[in-house]
Simulated assay, not measured.
Amino acid sequence: MSVVIRELLPTSPADAEGFARVRRAAVPFMLATAESVLFDVSHIHPDAHYRPLLAELDGEIIGTVQSGVAYDSPLPGQGFLNVYVHPEHRRRGAGSLLARTAEAHLAERGVRTVYSWVLDEPENRAFAERRDYRPSRTAHFLRLDLAEGTLPPLAPVPEGVELRTAADFADDPRPMFELDAECVLDEPGDIPAEFDDYEQWLEDTWRHPLLDRSLTTVAVAGGRPVAFTAARTDGGSRYATAMTGTARSHRGQGLAKLVKNDSLHRAREAGITEAFTGNDTGNAPMLAVNTWFGYAIGATEVRYVRELG
Rank of each mutant, 00 (worst) to 15 (best):
S2Y: 10
S2K: 12
V3Q: 06
V4A: 14
A14P: 06
A14G: 09
A14I: 15
D15N: 03
D15G: 00
A16K: 01
G18D: 01
A25S: 11
F29I: 07
T33M: 05
A34W: 05
F39C: 08
D40A: 11
V41S: 01
H45Q: 07
D47Y: 04
A55G: 02
I61T: 13
T64F: 04
V65T: 03
S67P: 03
G68D: 01
V69K: 00
Y71N: 01
Y71S: 00
P74N: 02
L75M: 09
P76K: 03
V85G: 04
V85E: 00
E88F: 11
T101E: 11
E108R: 02
R112N: 01
Y115E: 02
W117N: 05
W117I: 04
V118L: 04
D120R: 12
E121Q: 12
E123W: 12
F127H: 04
R130I: 05
D132P: 03
S136F: 10
S136L: 15
R137T: 10
E148Y: 12
P158Y: 04
G160R: 09
R164D: 06
T165Y: 06
T165G: 03
D171F: 10
D171K: 11
D172I: 08
M176I: 13
E178Q: 11
D180V: 10
W201G: 01
E203Q: 14
W206C: 01
H208F: 07
L210P: 02
T217I: 12
V220K: 01
P225R: 04
A230F: 12
A231I: 13
T233R: 07
G235V: 05
A247K: 01
R248V: 12
R248C: 11
R248F: 11
R248N: 13
L255A: 06
A256T: 06
K257E: 15
L258C: 08
H265L: 08
R268K: 09
R268V: 06
E269D: 12
A270S: 13
E274A: 14
E274I: 09
G282V: 08
G282F: 09
A284L: 15
A284N: 12
A288D: 14
N290Q: 07
N290R: 01
T291C: 14
G294N: 06
E301Q: 12
R303M: 15
V305R: 06
G309A: 14
